[in-house]
Each structure stands twice: as C-alpha cells, then as structure tokens.
Amino acid sequence: MKQIQARNLYEGAVILTDFCPTIVTGLEVRSTGTVAVRLHGTGPTWQPGRTVLYRPHHRLTLCVVPAVAWRVHHQHRDRNTGQGAGATHTSSRLTPVYTVRQYWANGTDHQAVARLMEEHTVVTSIPITLDQLPGEGQPTPQPAEPGARRFYRLYGRGPTVLRTGDDVRQRLAEITAIHDREHGERDERDNRLAPTCPVRQCSRCVGGPHDLEPLEVVITRSEHETQFADLPQDWDYELTPAMAHKRVVAAYGRELRPQQPENRQGAPEEDGDLTCPKCGAGGVERKCRQWAVCSAPACTWGGLEFELTGYGPCAPGWTT
C-alpha cells in the first residue's frame, strides 16, 4: 500500500474507504481547498454514485500500486568491428526515465545495447477476513500469472511478509498472548491482572482500529521489449502513480481491479454457526472483520474471531 494525496488521485485508482477497496471513477476540483472524488464500491451498504469531498493534502491509501522500470541488456563493444560481442549483461532496474537515458549514453563507447526491456509491477493489497485465509496446514495458492506471488500481512503490524494462513493466525495469537500477559493493571501486591480491554483496543498493541486486519498481497510482474524512442517524454524526473497507471493500463489493455478472494478454509459463513468459547452457545455474531460477540443474554464474551477456530486463547476479562 502507498499513501497518496487527494490532489494526486486519478481515475481508475483503487483506494481504501471505510477500510474497503473503492474505485475512483471521477475527480472534480471545486475550489482551491476542496477536491470532489466520485467513488464506486461493492457491498450491501454501499451507496451508488457516492461523492466524497477531501482537502487537496488529505492522505489516502492506494490498494493497487503500479510501477514502471526498465532494464538494459548490453554486450561488450568490439573495438575493431564496433559490434557487440561476448556474453549479454543486464542492468539493474532503472527508474525514473532519465536514469535509463544516462545509463545508455554513458555506455555507448564501450558497450552495445542488445535490447531494452520495460518492466511493469503491480502490487495489490486488499483487506480480507480470516475465513479467506488458507486453512490449517494448507499452502498459499499462488496466482496463475508467471512470476506472480501471493502472501499475507497485517495492516499495521509486522512482519511485512506472512507466507501462509498459519503464519497469520500464529502472529495474531502471539500479539494476543503478549496483551493478556503484559498489558493488564497491577494489584496492590504488584501482581499483573487480566486486561480489561481487547487487544484491538489496546493503545500499546495497536495504533489504529484496523492494525490487526489481515491483508492479501499479490505482486504481478510483466515485461516486454521496447525501443529507446518509445521511452516516455513527459516525465523524466518523477514517476507518480497516475503516470505509471496510465502506462501499465495501456500495456495490459484493461483497468487494474483487485479481485476479492474466496473462502479458502471452508469456515462457516453464518453467525449462528459460531460457538462461544465461554458459554458454549451458538449465537456468536460478527461485528466487523475480526471482532465477534456472544448474543446470549447471560454471557458477555467478546473477542477476536480467530479465537473461535482454536488458534488462540480466550482473553480473560474481555467484555463488550
């Protein structure tokens, strides 16, 4: 994910709104201090044709981040014939455009360019539920595109890469265990008490309400041969997401849209199928992506949804 100011948004951008991916379908600068952004989203509570007003410097989060880079494949130039000879060497990823021209110009006396490759990278990060993670012991299904990779992470907590669903559940269990052990108050004998708030509301564990939300990250890469004359002429010294998006979409021939993953572990979809770990009743309700509460009148249990699947203990003292 990447932060972007409202004044730098572009049509086709996918941003987080109410922690759900939404597509920017239109932009209008209504004044020097207001940008009107027309959004399109999905879901039962979404309002079609929704328009949100932002300050130009308001920061938003991009879910789909495109990037463009180039690689120069060259050979050693023979002094007698002036032609390339020997093995072909490849440069590192070059961006922005002026570095490609500089690399090309500085090597003309001793190297011959064999080909110029343009590389497109698209990093898609979308919030998912725990039901959409692979089940226990299952590997992470990889995308069908060659060279693409899929992994997971938590929105506001490290590490950056969690390879499987088991890694995500283990990380959530570790954070919960630390919260239960370290973040309660002490009694008069200096004994640690159970925390009175859940981990997602603990300021020492999280910095925001969505920090423990799991994300699915998919990185796709593609490359094609191009010519020196086809390099962009209008953005030498900067590579904004809007410019990269325009070039990647032109190459793909379609808009960049995130795909919502399916339920990969066969977890129950109905609230009534979830069993409370405290009273044993089957009336647990999902309140958001990870938070669940028991609907039994005499029970006050509330906790993270992953505790219902046996991957973490029920935190004592958690109430709604």
Rank of each mutant, 00 (worst) to 15 (best):
1 M>N: 05
2 K>F: 06
2 K>S: 14
9 L>S: 09
12 G>P: 06
16 L>R: 03
17 T>K: 11
19 F>V: 00
21 P>D: 01
26 G>W: 13
28 E>G: 11
31 S>E: 10
39 L>N: 11
39 L>H: 07
44 P>N: 08
46 W>F: 13
49 G>D: 10
52 V>E: 10
53 L>G: 03
53 L>H: 13
56 P>Q: 12
59 R>F: 05
60 L>R: 02
64 V>Y: 01
68 V>F: 04
69 A>Q: 08
72 V>P: 00
81 T>N: 11
83 Q>V: 08
84 G>T: 11
92 S>D: 14
100 V>L: 09
102 Q>S: 13
105 A>S: 07
109 D>G: 06
113 V>Y: 06
114 A>E: 15
114 A>W: 06
115 R>E: 14
126 I>S: 07
127 P>V: 07
133 L>C: 07
134 P>Y: 12
139 P>A: 09
144 A>Y: 00
155 Y>E: 02
160 T>H: 13
161 V>P: 00
161 V>R: 15
170 Q>R: 13
177 A>G: 10
178 I>C: 11
186 R>A: 12
187 D>E: 12
189 R>K: 12
199 V>L: 06
200 R>E: 04
203 S>F: 07
203 S>V: 07
206 V>F: 03
206 V>K: 09
210 H>W: 01
212 L>E: 00
218 V>P: 01
218 V>Y: 06
220 T>A: 10
221 R>D: 05
228 F>M: 15
229 A>C: 02
236 D>S: 11
246 K>F: 01
247 R>P: 04
253 G>W: 05
256 L>H: 08
265 Q>H: 12
265 Q>C: 15
271 D>Y: 06
275 T>L: 01
276 C>H: 03
278 K>R: 12
284 V>C: 04
286 R>F: 08
286 R>A: 13
287 K>L: 13
287 K>R: 09
292 A>I: 08
296 A>W: 00
298 A>K: 13
300 T>V: 08
301 W>A: 02
304 L>A: 13
307 E>H: 08
309 T>V: 14
315 A>N: 06
316 P>K: 09
